[in-house]
Simulated scan of single mutants.
Amino acid sequence: MVIMEESQPERLSCLAVCAGAGGLALGLEQAGFEPVLLLDNRPVACETLRLNRPDWKVLETDLLDFDPLDHQMVYDVDLLAAGLPRVKASAAVKREDSTEELRLLEATIMLMHAVRPRALLIENLPELATKPAFDPIRTTVAAELEHLGYRHRWFVLNAMHHGVPQDRKHGILVALKGDAMDGFVEPAPETAPPITVGEALGTSMAARGWPHATAWAAQADRVAPTLVGGSWKRGGADLGLTGSKRAWARMRVNGGTVADEVPGPDFPWDASLGVKEMTPLTVEQTARLQGFPADWAFAGGKTARYRQVGQASPPPVSRALGLAIRTALGRPTDPEHR
C-alpha cells in the first residue's frame, strides 16, 4: 500500500520591518509566511531574532535608511509587515519622538512603491484606526495606497479574543492589490473564554516550590491589563501606569517591578501585606502573557528583555492576521480557512 504524504501548505514570502523581538514575524511564520529579510534598528532586538532563528536574514538598520536596491530579494514579496512604534497624533499628544514615529509609518507606506508586495500589514495602537485625531494620517495613507492600486481596511483586534491572556487592543491596517481585498475577512474572535493570568502562569509560579501558587492562580481569574514596555530612553522595567498597577494589585501582583525569578518556598502570602510584598512577574512570565512560546529567548539584560516583550506584537494575533491574509491571497492553509 502506498502511503501518501500530507501536502505542506505553500510558504509565502514576507518582508518584516521594525521587527522588534519577532512577535509579528513568528506569528506570520506560523501562518505560512517565510521572511526574506527582517530589519530593526536596535542591536538587542536583532540579537534576539538571530538567537531564535539563526536562518533568518536580519539587517540591523533604521527603516528610514533602508534602500531596497541593496536588498532586491524584497521585491515582489507576498507581504510587507510592520510592527511600528506607536504613532501619536500631534494634535492630541506632544512628545519629542512623535515625529519619528509618524515618519516610520510614512516610510513603510513609501516602501510600497519599490517593494510592490501583494499585501500590506501594519500593527499599531487602536486609536490610529478609529479616532478623529488621526484622520489626517489615515487620509494620507489612503491616498498613497489608492495611487499604488491597493484597497485597504482599518480595524481593531483585541488580543484576548485570540488566545492571548491580556486585554490588549491593536489598530490594524491591511491592504491588498485590486479586488483581492474582497476576499479578506477580519479574524473572528475565538469561541473559548479568554485565558486568565492564573491559567497562563499558575505552573510557572509553582516552579520553585512556592506553596501558595495554586491559591494565587485561583484568584488571578481575569486577563492581564495591557503590558507596556516603556521608553527605551528612560525608566526601568515595570508593568505599566498607575491604573495597570492597581489592576495587577487586585491579582496580588506587584506591577512596579519585574522579578529575576519566580517565588520560592518562603515567599509570603498575606492579603494584609502591601504591594511591595506581592509577587512580581519575571520577564519570561510576561512573555507568556504576550503569547510567546516558552522556548522563545530574549537577548540582553532584564530591562532590555522586558522592553522587547512589552513592545512586541503577540504572535497569536499575528498568526490570525496571517491566515486571514493568506486566504484573501487565495492560499489558505487548510479547509478551515478556505
Rank of each mutant, 00 (worst) to 15 (best):
Q290Y: 00
I172F: 06
D55V: 07
W296A: 03
A129R: 00
A21L: 08
G202P: 07
L173S: 02
R326D: 05
M112L: 15
A114E: 15
L39F: 04
L24I: 11
V309D: 01
A259T: 07
F134L: 03
V164H: 02
G235E: 09
L120K: 07
D238I: 01
R288M: 12
A297L: 13
P35S: 13
V77R: 02
V283C: 09
G230Y: 02
D238K: 08
C18Q: 14
I195R: 15
L59F: 10
Q311A: 14
G149I: 05
V174M: 11
H147S: 06
A287F: 04
A287Q: 02
A297I: 07
G202Y: 07
G178T: 10
L289G: 00
S204Y: 13
V283N: 01
R86A: 11
P211L: 11
L145M: 12
R208L: 14
A259F: 04
T130F: 00
M4T: 12
L128D: 00
D135M: 06
K57Q: 14
S313C: 15
P126H: 09
D295T: 12
F155P: 00
V317P: 00
P187M: 12
L28P: 00
F184P: 07
M73R: 14
H113T: 14
G163K: 09
P314Q: 11
T139N: 09
H152P: 00
T242D: 12
P9E: 14
R319E: 15
L173W: 01
M1N: 06
R116L: 15
S90D: 04
A220W: 00
T214V: 14
P225S: 11
P225T: 10
G264E: 07
D260R: 10
V258E: 00
G27P: 08
L28S: 03
R42C: 02
E60F: 06
L176W: 04
Q30K: 10
N254Q: 06
D295S: 11
R168S: 04
L227K: 03
G274H: 06
S313Y: 02
H337Y: 14
I137H: 13
Q72H: 09
A31F: 04
G178I: 10
V275D: 03
E34W: 10
P280M: 07
V2P: 13
K276Y: 06
H337K: 13
V141P: 00
E284W: 01
D238M: 06
L38P: 00
D76G: 12
P335L: 14
K169I: 01
G256D: 11
P268R: 08
W296E: 03
V93P: 03
A143F: 06
R53Y: 01
R208S: 12
L26Q: 08
R250M: 08
